[in-house]
Nucleic acid binder design. Sequence first.
DNA 1: GCGCTGACAGATTTCAATATCTGTCAGCAC
DNA 2: GTGCTGACAGATATTGAAATCTGTCAGCGC
Lengths: 195, 195
Amino acid sequence: MNEAVVLTSERILEVTEDVLRRYGLAKATVVDVARALDVSHGSVYRHFPSKASLREAVAKRWLERVSRPLAQIAAEPGPAPAKLERWLRELFDAKHKRVCEDPEMFATYLTLAREACAVVKAHKQELISQVEGMIAEGVAQGAFDVADPKIAAAAIFDATRSFHHPAHADEWADCTCSTRVDAVLTLLLRGLAAR
Amino acid sequence: MNEAVVLTSERILEVTEDVLRRYGLAKATVVDVARALDVSHGSVYRHFPSKASLREAVAKRWLERVSRPLAQIAAEPGPAPAKLERWLRELFDAKHKRVCEDPEMFATYLTLAREACAVVKAHKQELISQVEGMIAEGVAQGAFDVADPKIAAAAIFDATRSFHHPAHADEWADCTCSTRVDAVLTLLLRGLAAR
DNA sequence: GCGCTGACAGATTTCAATATCTGTCAGCAC
DNA sequence: GTGCTGACAGATATTGAAATCTGTCAGCGC
């Protein structure tokens, strides 16, 4: 009963990421993954019903690595405005770092995400509800003046797309980027603030 | 001297748009354009040094059809906040209409624009400076409280990307879209407002 | 029984031959 | 002289045959 050699979904996902990194998205096949795991490709299909579902699971893992640390920030106590700002900056940082440190792998994950549209939708909803929580908190603290925290959260998400949506990743290397982040955050926090 | 049959750059551009509409971006060739104009393809190359420059000119025309009516709004007299809101809504409407009424042609123009990156950059700068003008006006009127109109204009542009950047066009048909536009505009105008 | 293998059919991708297009230019027509 | 044509070379796209991959499943080994 050696744990290390048991074939689990988790192990398949890890090796799949390696294979994607090594071969690139276009060339990585299920056969390659099976070879890297030293099993037949039929075995992989015992854990994932299709190549698409395997890719979807890889995308999900990737998105969870973004949303988990953010959930932690959202759960912390303290004044909502500062927390919201920190949360947003952390989100932007996480994305910007990923694209800067390994642009190829970012492109790979991006394509995976495009294919796994349902997973991305759930991820977006998760992030928006974290924001909603912080805005509701701010309202309770008397710091924010907002009619509907749900709608305001969606608005914050929409208004910061330039800095977290991968379609704009090519601008994230721009040297004016941090100034632009500051300007948008200032505008939005002023817009939320009670007066 | 029949004006109608003289081969001008303008006439080539018009016919090129027709050809793009008829054949689609991938299949439209310079030979097709020349055939539609009833001249040899060599003649087209007297007016445009390359296929790329012809496509660029088509993209430029398209973008100008967006920015011209907006410039008119920006030039009107009146209170800046209402004008800025009207300007932004007009921008969103113009884009949304284009994608709804003819999605195929929108996709064509989008690809042209991607190839003509310099033209798009200039278009963005043009739009941002129109916004800058309105913000400066608002500051002069005492309606806006903003340190640097240039930076604020860029921030307004960034914060409204969801509704004017073609990467998000697939969301513009969403029924919640108009609510989301309202929410973001409310937030941004509150953020700009003097208090 | 349970999990894995590997042969298989149909779908997809690759590759090289073939066809078409881009961009040039000598020469023709006005 | 001016502006257009159409043949041409090199670049790019298309096509169809061959190779590879995906997803299934009967059967093997534990």
